[in-house]
Simulated assay, not measured.
Amino acid sequence: MSNERRAIVHSSKPELAHAVAERFLNKVPQIIAEFDEATIVLTGGTMGQAVLDAINSSPKRDAVDWSRVNFWWGDERWLPARDGERNDVQARAALLDHVAVDPERVHSFAASDSGLGLDDAAAAYSHELAQHSTRFGTYPHFDIVFLGVGPDGHIASLFPEREGIRETERTVIAVRNSPKPPDERLSLTLPVLNSSVRIWAVVAGSDKASALGLTLAGASYNEVPAAGLEGRRKTLFFVDSEAAAQVPDSLIDPGQFWTSADSTDEH
């Protein structure tokens, strides 16, 4: 397995969101042309939504055959279906409601008002992953997994020194007593995230600098969950200059401050 792990720095949050959006809009048509579909895992958070906003506002948006794109989520807040704090609600408002997606290809986690309990909701999403899995697998073939990184280094809803980050058997876990509100959440586990061909972590802000520095320096993923990210082909950290403040120069990609032309090297 060949895996690249790089940090690509952009000067500001808007430029970061724009560059990731452009890379996405260049890459997804290539994936669809090769495999007849693309499968994407979305994330929440400020930068996750900013990237979707940038995709939506790009003139390249309608060059994507959105009817061939499958959407999943890395984690979700255990809130009612229409709650504006849910990751899927934010994603729909930012992008999915504006493009011609196939509703059957949009896979949201169950909501707290769905009639399911938290554990049953985790089991239901795990079952849904298995139903769309590759042959003999337990989850789909993911082309791109988007993730944010918290100030504590958490990814999805996998937090430092919690059981969730060490889970290797289950594909989806119920999270209780989260250190970040709301207390209850649902999350894919690290092996599922790492099954993706490409992991794109989008990280911005000075409060993320320490976690990013530790991540790229090879900290223990039990202590800094983001350090456990390893996509099958590429693990890219798209960051702004503030988040990169504690990353040694040797760990920053020499093509920092790249533009959308960056995507041409990815196969």
Rank of each mutant, 00 (worst) to 15 (best):
H132D: 00
L158D: 06
Y139E: 10
P191E: 07
F136T: 09
L129F: 02
A111Q: 10
V197A: 14
A122L: 05
S178T: 08
A121F: 10
S178C: 10
R176H: 10
D183Y: 09
A174T: 05
D152T: 12
A111Y: 08
D113R: 11
D119S: 02
P182C: 13
F159V: 03
F136S: 10
P182A: 13
I155L: 06
P191K: 07
V172I: 15
I165F: 03
A209M: 09
E167D: 11
V175P: 04
F146A: 02
G164N: 03
D183Q: 14
R176G: 05
K208T: 10
G137Y: 00
E167R: 09
L129K: 01
E184R: 13
L190S: 06
R162T: 15
V172T: 13
F146H: 13
S195W: 00
V197R: 14
K208H: 13
A201H: 09
R185N: 06
R135E: 14
S195H: 05
E163W: 08
A130L: 07
E169D: 14
V175E: 06
S126P: 00
P151W: 02
N177T: 14
S112I: 10
L116F: 11
H127E: 15
R176W: 01
L193P: 00
N194A: 03
S187T: 15
P181R: 13
G150Y: 08
P140R: 03
I144M: 05
I165N: 02
V149Y: 03
R170F: 00
V149H: 03
S157H: 06
E169V: 14
A122Q: 06
S196C: 10
I155N: 03
S195K: 00
I144K: 04
L186S: 09
A123T: 12
G164Q: 12
A111M: 11
A201N: 08
D207V: 04
R166L: 15
P179E: 13
L118Q: 02
Q131F: 01
I144Q: 06
Q131L: 13
A130K: 13
T189P: 04
A123R: 14
V192D: 02
P179C: 13
P160N: 05
E128V: 04
T138H: 07
E161H: 06
V192A: 03
T189I: 09
Q131H: 03
